[in-house]
Each structure stands twice: as C-alpha cells, then as structure tokens.
Design a protein around this nucleic acid. Structure first.
Lengths: 214, 214
DNA sequence: ACCTGAACACCGTTCAAGT
DNA sequence: ACCTGAACACCGTTCAAGT
C-alpha cells in the first residue's frame, strides 16, 4: 500500500478531507452565486475532483446540502452569540433584543445561507432534516431559550412556559427574516437602516408583550 | 384566417388559454409532486403542448412560477377570509385569531403552495417578485391590517401603529408556518392537533401582548 | 478505500422552421 | 400569432473500471 504524499497543483484539499472541502466549496458557491449556483458538480469541480467523487461522502445532493446548511446554522448561532456578548450580563431583555437583531441581520447579510438552512433542498420533501442539521438547530434554539428562561427567572419577563415564549420569539424573528429575504417587504430589501428600524420596532413590541407587568 | 374549433383528444386547454392551463398544471404538479416536481417541461406536457410553447406566454421559468405563486397566494387569502368569516362580527380579537389559524393551517395543508409562494424560484435571486405576485401579497396583508386597525379603533388592541402591529402579527404566523413546513419543529410535523395547540398558544401570547391594558 | 469517465434521464433555454 | 422539433449546456445519479 502506498500513501500519496505529493498532491498535484490542482488539488485543493488534503487527503481524507474531501467531505470538508465539498462543504467549504458549497458555502463559497452560495456566497458568490446564491442558491441557484449550488450544484453537486460545481462543488466537486471547486474541490478539484470529478463530479462522481462526492458520492463517496454523501448519499445524494440532499445530504451535501444538509451538511452545508448545518455549517451555515452554526455560523448563524455564532452570529447570535456575538451579538448577545456585546450586551451587559444580567440584562436578559437587552440580550433578547440583541439575539433578535443578530438573527435578522444574519438573514439580511447572508441571504443564501439563510435560505439554504431553512430551505427544502436539505432533505426530500415531507421528510425530517437529518440529525446533524437538527442538532445545529437545537443548539441555536438553546441560546434563545436560555435567555428567555433567565428573563423569567429574573422577573423581567412575564411568568410562563419558557418553550412557548421562545418559540414565539423565534417565529417572530424567523418570519421577519424570511419576509425580508424573499422580497415580500420591498421597503426593507437592501435598506439596512430600514431593516434595523423594523426589527427594533418589532422587538420592542415583543418586549412590551412579554415584559412582566409591574 | 381560420379559427380552429375542433381540438384533438389530447388537448386539455381552450384556444388562447394556454397561459391559464400552464398555471393550473403547475398547481397540480405542486400538489401531487411537491416543488421538486414543478418543471416547465412537465407543466407543458400536462397542458398538452411542446416544452417550448410556454415561452410564448412566460419569459422564463421564474415568470411561470410567479404566476403559479400568485394563484396560490390568492388561495391563501381566500383561506384566511373563510376562517375569519366563521367569526362573530365586531370581535376583532377573535377575527385576528381566526386569521392566524387560517394562515398556519394553509401552510400545513398546502406546504408546496406555501413554499412556492414565499420561495426563491419566483424571481432571480436579489430581485423583487413581479408586480402581480406583490399585489396578491398586498391583498392578503390588507385583510390582516384591516382587522388590526379595527381592533385598535374598537379599543380592543393597544393603541399603536397599525402597520407595525400587522407586520409583527404576519411575521409571527409566517415564521411559525415556515418552521413547521420546513421540519424545524419535529413535534408538529404531521400532528395537526399539536399544530393547532402551538398556534393557539402563540396567538394567545400575541393577544396578551397586543391587548389594551385595562 | 477512493476516485474517474462514460452513460442515462432529466432540465431550462434558444432558434429555425412550420401553420 | 402561435406552436413544434432539434439542439445546446447544464444537472443528479449510476456503474464499470482504474489505482
């Protein structure tokens, strides 16, 4: 048996890392050409392999897209965490607001990632997304839920089921992000200031609604 | 000039109605095979014409999908109206709740329509959906906004900007519908009772938040 | 074990040609 | 004016064959 050590100039991935290289290529394709530009063959070409090679690592295109979406979801979670980190500790309402801004601003800044994460290409229609992607989603949800629970415990939020409040908050920012990205809110499309204002207004509404009445 | 009166057995559309026949074929494909089954060629075949014929009526596939989405949006609006009609007049809060249930239940019952209406296939990425689809969206929004305005005027809802409240309500139900349809809420996927319960809880939360404090 | 190249069925789009 | 049929470039997927 021989292990190839020298790679040809065209090779852009390390031996054994084709899977990772394909995911990275997919993210690049999404950034540069949008969802329409994401094809299995283009990802293979970017990774420097034949169009059939990806099938060694992914059962079908859905599986590749799901892996790309999982990576995108972790970027979204990181984006939310960073937005919240700028906030003073012990201020769950401010943290909630920061998470909301982080979520919506990620959607606006990376529309192709956002669409892919929550799009139907991730698995056959009618099926549930694969475990890795669901776990990435659960991680993002946990960040939100922890903040909501903290807010309830601190008495800043109206007492209630933390999951119900969290799901409502998620639906709110997710719906807003989707409507903006899909062009249903023409005023906000590519008007960052308008996006921020609309998000702010909506978060204020959420806060007013969820705040504990004193 | 001659007008063809007799159609061959394979013809399924009236002369001059190919456009309508293609939209109808598209809706059928969506219902039966989902988004993946919606192709220009399949729609043409269902309508009984060659794969090149649609280009007489639609500039490209985006234009056909947009026309199908417009029709789907009008079905969604009708679904909302019917849900609200079962409600006592002069009860804006109940009407708002009915609209929310109508919106989410349409998403669950017609996931392929819902995905297509708000999906990226409706126009090239980065562009705004065509006028017809935007008007269909504006019509649905008006139904919601009128109810919100009525609620404010009647003193049932907290005073405020009707557009801001309406956008928040739309985002909430849209986000919930999307998360369910895309399989992000595994508990609700194909569990109608659970969907109803979750929607109900969220609408209650919305009501509590928006209700005028007495 | 991992990848290649040919092959297949499908797709969107264009265009000369037919009526 | 409206549609057809061939053609082109692309796609996902499979499979025998190579190392």
């Amino acid at each position: 048996m021989s292990i190839r050590v020298n790679r040809k100039p065209g090779d852009v991935y390390q031996h054994g890392d084709l899977r990772r290289a394909l995911v990275k290529a997919g993210l690049k394709l999404l950034s540069e050409s949008g969802e329409a530009g994401l094809s299995l063959r283009a990802a293979a070409e970017l990774a420097g392999v034949s169009h059939a090679a990806p099938y060694r690592h992914f059962r079908d295109k859905h599986a590749l897209v799901a892996a790309i979406a999982e990576e995108g979801f972790r970027l979204l979670t990181q984006h939310m965490r960073e937005a919240a980190a700028a906030c003073a500790p012990g201020d769950p309402l401010g943290r909630l607001r920061a998470l909301a801004h982080g979520y919506v601003s990620f959607a606006v800044r990376h529309p192709a990632y956002f669409r892919t994460i929550f799009g139907g290409a991730v698995c056959p229609e009618g099926e549930t997304p694969p475990a890795g992607l669901r776990e990435a989603g659960a991680e993002a949800y946990r960040v939100l839920r922890d903040t909501v629970a903290e807010g309830i415990a601190a008495g800043a939020l109206r007492p209630g089921d933390a999951d119900q409040l969290s799901l409502a908050a998620w639906s709110l920012v997710h719906g807003l992000g989707m409507l903006i990205v899909e062009g249903q809110l023409p005023d906000t499309r590519s008007h960052p200031a308008r996006v921020k204002a609309v998000t702010d207004g909506m978060v204020t509404l959420l806060e007013v609604g969820l705040r504990r009445v004193r």
